[in-house]
């Protein structure tokens, strides 16, 4: 590996930064993945709800209209779901009986689906979250 040039060394972020509070110490923070952050937020919201019902500021209307990360989530579509061929993206009128892949016509079935090595079908299904996840 070639040695790094001075230029590149200069580009590294310098610490301590002079504009920072000298008393500041980076706190230890437990790393929480997305899923846990969301469940924490959900818990927090549930607890505040209880406070409201206790009569501190019980405004039912406001509760209903509360804007949270979760209330903003778009709802599922009410329109009939359209099906597409998993391989080509064309209309997917047919479905294989053994793994549920959707396909456009017999050519796709014979040339692609039949000759698929094992596991590839699951990769295709994963594209639309329909794969089987073993836990």
């Amino acid at each position: 590996m070639p040695p790094l040039t001075d230029d590149i060394y200069q580009a590294a972020v310098q610490r301590p930064a002079r504009f920072k509070n000298p008393k500041w110490k980076t706190p230890y923070r437990r790393h929480k993945p997305l899923r846990q952050l969301l469940s924490d937020e959900q818990k927090r919201l549930n607890n505040t709800d209880v406070d409201n019902k206790d009569g501190t500021n019980g405004n039912a209307r406001k509760d209903f209209n509360q804007v949270t990360y979760f209330s903003l989530d778009a709802y599922p579509s009410l329109k009939p779901r359209k099906h597409y061929c998993d391989i080509t993206g064309l209309k997917g009128n047919y479905k294989t009986p053994n793994n549920g892949l959707r396909y456009y016509n017999v050519e796709v079935y014979n040339d692609v689906i039949k000759t698929m090595t094992s596991g590839v079908d699951q990769q295709y299904l994963e594209l639309r979250n329909a794969n089987i996840v073993l836990k």
Partner: peptide, 16 residues
């Protein structure tokens, strides 16, 4: 427009 294509169970831009 159709998040269902990628298995996201939500309505698309136009429907919302």
């Amino acid at each position: 427009f159709q998040p269902s294509i990628v298995g996201v169970d939500q309505a698309g831009i136009s429907e919302l």
